[in-house]
């Protein structure tokens, strides 16, 4: 019986092969599955899906438009002053709302001077923190300490300024600055009277605030360096510090630079803390002890009570300058960090 069944089956298969009508039928059923499905036409995509996508897209363009209008509006608001003073606006140290004479040089100088001072103080500390947490400290300790460092970044800047004004400034006035004046007043950097408030206090507060930024950027870049580089250095007999110099710092140098520039960006735009400790006098001064004013702090001090349109416009011009500088600085930092991350991608 089985044999008979087999015979009929074979006959059927033979018939399939021989009969052109049946063969065609078979080929069609087989060729259906490997055939590629056509991409759906636009009208075939679910309506809700399209609506969702375009909703997202319109929102995105809304945000982009908002940012564009921000740039345009700030430029438009500062145009009267820029037009009135021309390039002189950036090279004039006079800022006087009585004579309606406004120039931003003293403010630009104040911003750059305080930020530079902050960098000099914060860079060794920030890089040191990153190295200690990544390379030396045991994992538990590093975890706890990094949480504390992040907390440092979370404290609002007005509290930093307040603390600086009532704890740091009296200490500077009573102990550090008189000593500096006694011993180093032959240097132009330390000329003047120990007022407490001034560029030195602003630099110290800024330094405290940018240490977490520098440390966290450096840590990320150091983490991107392959572990095998460190092991190679240790295997060749390097001590831990030599390993840090050879494998970590050398390779992570551009990351360190990126972190420094990011910290600089934060220092340039920092407003409240600086406003409270810098002494608020618009003067171009090369002494660390002198009170000064930065671009951000003059905005905080005068913007709400600007008495003339030209004054308001000049203040907005200062804001525009600050805007441009911080975009340039941050763009540079991002480029550097992006490059180092690309360099180490793949090698782990």
């Amino acid at each position: 019986m089985f044999l008979r069944y087999k015979r009929t089956c074979l006959a059927k298969i033979k018939a399939l092969d021989l009969n052109p009508k049946l063969r065609n039928q078979r080929d069609q059923t087989q060729s259906l599955s490997p055939k590629k499905p056509k991409p759906p036409k636009k009208s075939e995509i679910h309506f809700a899906d399209r609506a969702f996508y375009y909703g997202l897209k319109i929102t995105s363009w809304g945000i982009i438009f908002l940012l564009l209008s921000m740039v345009v509006l700030i430029f438009k608001m500062s145009w009267p002053a820029l037009h009135h003073f021309g390039f002189r606006f950036f090279f004039n140290t006079e800022w006087n709302s009585v004579t309606q004479e406004f120039g931003a040089l003293a403010l630009i100088h104040g911003t750059l001077f305080t930020s530079l001072g902050a960098l000099i103080l914060a860079v060794p500390v920030g890089v040191g923190v990153a190295l200690f947490l990544n390379e030396i400290a045991p994992r538990r300790l590093a975890h706890a300490l990094s949480f504390l460092i992040e907390t440092l970044a979370a404290i609002p800047s007005v509290v930093y300024g307040f603390w600086g004004l009532f704890v740091l400034v009296p200490w500077l006035r009573q102990s550090l600055q008189p000593w500096l004046v006694d011993h180093f007043s032959w240097m132009p950097l330390f000329k003047g009277y120990p007022l407490g408030v001034g560029i030195m206090a602003a630099s110290i507060v800024l330094a405290i605030m940018i240490v977490p930024t520098i440390a966290s950027t450096c840590r990320e870049v150091f983490r991107a360096i392959p572990q095998s580089h460190r092991e190679a250095a240790l295997a060749l007999g390097a001590t831990r510090w030599e390993m840090i110099c050879l494998a970590v710092l050398k390779a992570g140098m551009s990351g360190v630079i990126g972190g420094i520039i990011l910290g600089l960006g934060r220092a340039l735009g920092e407003t409240m803390a600086v406003t409270m400790v810098i002494g608020n006098r618009i003067e171009l001064n090369w002494s660390l002890l002198a009170p000064a004013q930065t671009m951000a702090s003059v905005l905080a001090n005068q913007y709400a009570e600007a008495d003339s349109d030209l004054h308001l416009s000049a203040l907005t011009g200062v804001g525009l300058t600050l805007f441009a500088v911080s975009i340039l600085v941050n763009g540079g930092a991002r480029f550097v960090v992006w490059r180092i991350e690309r360099k180490f991608r793949g090698a782990k």
Partner: peptide, 24 residues
């Protein structure tokens, strides 16, 4: 473009945002 503008907005000092809102 959106990613770029969000990055830009992140690095703008907050007082500049204040100026923009003041103007608008």
């Amino acid at each position: 473009i959106l990613r770029f503008s969000l990055d830009l907005l992140t690095c703008v000092p907050s007082i500049i945002v204040g100026i923009f809102v003041y103007g608008i």
